[in-house]
């Protein structure tokens, strides 16, 4: 059983299981979305002293913060107990293109060491990329009112127009970064 679960899961397992998570949250009276927790964490860190936007009744968000704590634990369980070191089955064209950008061993791990290694983290450029990417994620999701879970999955599932616009935005930004900016940032 553990061996079976430790293999990489195909898309037709992952997608339906994500829909199951959405279902359980709604079934128990909540909603599905992760990025609002960034606001909750800011509020916990004292951001409510700077803006009324962060005056959040955290007692009503306990469930959501527990959900996030669970996500972290789930990541650890997958890492330590459900991992068989399978390489990610990437398109060979992707691997070759990345090699041309200076990314070696694509797919051997979840994340490229060219961005996420400790060595890169300790360089000004590497640190700026990590911090800047995070900033764009935090600012953008909260300004748009949701991320992949809240807009692209819950919002599109409930046929909401604002979520369609936001999801189009996700792709505009993602395509610009992948096709034009990453080749500049990682010019080997």
């Amino acid at each position: 059983m553990i061996d079976f679960l430790s293999q990489p899961w195909p898309w037709y397992a992952g997608g339906p299981l994500i829909a199951l998570v959405l279902f359980t949250l709604f079934y128990f009276g909540k909603s599905f979305g992760v990025s609002s927790n960034l606001d909750h964490l800011c509020s916990i860190a004292g951001a409510d002293k700077f803006s009324t936007y962060f005056k959040i009744d955290l007692k009503t968000k306990t469930w959501s913060l527990l959900f996030v704590a669970g996500i972290i634990i789930g990541g650890s369980i997958a890492h330590f107990y459900l991992s068989n070191q399978n390489a990610i089955n990437l398109n060979p064209n992707t691997v070759e293109e990345l090699a041309n950008l200076g990314f070696a061993n694509s797919g051997v791990e979840y994340l490229p060491s060219e961005i996420f290694s400790i060595d890169k983290l300790l360089t000004l450029k590497g640190f700026s990329i990590l911090l800047g990417a995070g900033f764009l994620i935090g600012f953008g999701t909260r300004y748009a009112g949701g991320c992949t879970s809240g807009h692209a999955i819950t919002g599109l599932s409930s046929l909401q127009f604002p979520s369609l616009i936001a999801t189009i935005g996700f792709f505009i930004g993602g395509l610009v970064m992948t096709w034009f900016l990453i080749p500049i940032l990682f010019n080997a």
């Binding site: 960034l38 300004y143 992949t148 616009i165 935005g169």
Partner: peptide, 30 residues
């Protein structure tokens, strides 16, 4: 807000390769 915010998030999503959920998952991966 939906379009511009979405686009800003998309830039970060593609660069870091993770949206908010996976940020927490990867924290768990160490």
């Amino acid at each position: 807000r939906n379009l511009i915010g979405g686009t800003i998030f998309g830039l970060g999503w593609a660069l870091a390769g993770c949206c908010p959920g996976p940020i927490f998952v990867l924290l768990g991966h160490g």
